[in-house]
């Protein structure tokens, strides 16, 4: 078996008296999609932010390719976030430059990594826009004029253009209309499979977790109450909270 891409050991973080994370450990391997599900207040978003180095835990550590990210230093971490990692925000406005054209948004990571040929950058941007099903002719338009679903797809293109090994996704379909969500989920599913991405997906949508993830972690009040293969956890839930969560999902 290959070594984990990202490994977290005993992460603990309290905001005052509120336990956000209590001894959370997890691993993700190259090409794996792991969903972290839970309701609001479960700590799942905090976990994502700790795993991606945005927030430091009070105890425990996060290892990327065996290296402690706390010991990496900010320059190395920022370089990582620009190249090997990607982060898809729930609100696409947080992950886009709204006053830069769609093509410029997609090309930025390339330019930040040293790309200096305008024509090539534009060609790469056009290819990625097509891949996320945005009409390449809209390349020079500002994201302000895009629908929510389009903005989210643009954010995904912008994140994936440097072929990151690991992508953190924070409720990527949150706030979108149901039909738009389905299309976006399928797009993510296809891209993940085509590119062999490892994805840490935070979501409260169990159906999305079932569609996209091979493994799932169920969080409640800062703790991982159950984890395992997605279909196992969802079809044969053991923990009372998991059973509650699964039974609460309305079938269409």
């Amino acid at each position: 078996m290959s070594a984990p891409l990202l490994a977290a050991e005993g992460l603990t973080l309290r905001f005052g008296a509120i336990p956000a994370l209590l001894g959370v450990s997890l691993e993700i391997h190259p090409g794996e999609v792991v969903a972290i599900v839970g309701e609001s207040g479960s700590g799942k978003t905090t976990l994502l932010r700790v795993l991606s180095g945005q927030v430091a835990p009070q105890s425990g550590r996060v290892l990327y390719r065996g290296q402690d990210i706390a010991a990496m230093g900010e320059p190395a971490l920022r370089r990582l976030m620009r190249s090997e990692w990607g982060y898809v925000h729930q609100n696409p406005r947080d992950g886009l430059r709204m006053s830069v054209s769609a093509g410029g948004n997609v090309g930025e990571r390339l330019m930040a990594s040293g790309a200096r040929h305008y024509g090539n950058i534009r060609a790469a941007a056009a290819e990625w826009l097509a891949r996320v099903e945005i009409e390449p002719a809209r390349m020079d338009d500002l994201p302000r004029g895009f629908s929510g679903g389009m903005q989210q797809r643009l954010q995904i293109a912008r994140t994936l253009v440097t072929h990151p090994a690991l992508v953190f996704m924070d409720e990527p379909t949150g706030g979108l209309d149901v039909s738009v969500q389905a299309r976006l989920l399928d797009l993510i599913r296809g891209l993940v499979a085509d590119l062999g991405l490892a994805v840490l997906l935070v979501t409260h949508d169990i159906a999305a977790a079932r569609l996209l993830a091979g493994r799932i972690l169920v969080m409640r009040r800062g703790e991982v109450v159950e984890q395992g293969l997605t279909d196992r956890v969802l079809d044969d839930p053991q923990h009372p909270y998991t059973q509650l969560l699964v039974s609460s999902v309305l079938a269409a």
Partner: peptide, 18 residues
């Protein structure tokens, strides 16, 4: 500046050409 992270300026020039 500390990180020599100047992609943003390159983007601005890109937008100019656009």
């Amino acid at each position: 500046h500390a990180l020599a992270d100047y992609g943003l300026m390159q983007v601005r020039l890109y937008e100019d050409i656009v």
